[in-house]
């Protein structure tokens, strides 16, 4: 059995989580402590992938990332590559698709930390950015763990949006979920079983790990 799809899925999930932690942390912080009137609409926007059919997201991403699209067009002009049907296109799609799974636990963890420890840090001479990294982030540690694990697991399970944006190019965009679908199409149930069971067990273990950690210490983001 060809294990390349597993490798691509793991790569996609890892890259997506890293990008999401970098972009999602400031966003989550802003959602947690910000006072802008844009906070509520942005909060709702972040949650959108939770309720949207993946095909809707995939459809719009296809338009945005396509060679004539507002993102895909300039990308093609600069790099000479198309974003659709490429690994990079998958990463962009996955980042949007898994956004709430990373941002929401972080936002709740930062809310749980509250303003108190940051005020205390300021009183000891810590600049705001210093206080953020040396106090708020460590105190929200469990939230980071939850966010990373959920983002990773959810990206692994992605199907609809990826199929629309990435298709199924072996070695490039064929991830586990799509490989399973194609094994079933070609009636290769044995391979479909192996991959499905693997994904099932992996997802269960991930959730078990999070719930165990959250039960042990009651700080940071809850699922």
């Amino acid at each position: 059995m060809n294990l390349t799809p597993v490798w691509i899925s793991l790569q996609l999930a890892s890259v997506t989580v890293v990008v999401l932690l970098v972009l999602g942390t400031p966003l989550a912080w802003w959602l947690a402590v910000g006072r802008s009137r844009w906070r509520v609409p942005v909060d709702a926007l972040v949650a959108l992938p939770l309720v949207l059919p993946p095909t809707v997201l995939g459809f719009y991403m296809l338009i945005l990332l396509g060679p004539q699209g507002p993102i895909g067009g300039p990308w093609l002009a600069v790099t000479g590559d198309t974003l659709t049907f490429s690994f990079t296109g998958l990463v962009i799609t996955s980042v949007l698709y898994s956004l709430p799974f990373v941002v929401q636990p972080l936002r709740d963890a930062f809310r749980g930390v509250g303003a108190g420890p940051l005020e205390a840090a300021a009183m000891l001479g810590a600049r705001p950015l210093d206080a953020f990294f040396s106090v708020a982030c460590p105190l929200a540690g469990r939230g980071f763990l939850t966010a990373a694990v959920l983002g990773f697991a959810h990206t692994l399970g992605e199907f609809g949006a990826i199929l629309m944006v990435g298709g199924s190019i072996p070695g490039e965009t064929r991830v586990v979920a799509i490989a399973i679908y194609e094994h079933v199409e070609t009636l290769d149930y044995a391979s479909a079983h192996t991959l499905s069971a693997g994904l099932l067990v992996f997802s269960f273990l991930v959730l078990l790990a999070i719930y165990t950690l959250n039960r042990r210490g009651r700080s940071g983001g809850m699922v």
Partner: peptide
């Protein structure tokens, strides 16, 4: 002057020690 640049110490009622 922002709080972190004032040479002032504040002992909070709830201590606010850093739990980590």
């Amino acid at each position: 002057l922002p709080p972190h640049r004032r040479p002032v110490g504040l002992v909070f009622q709830d201590t606010r020690l850093f739990a980590h």
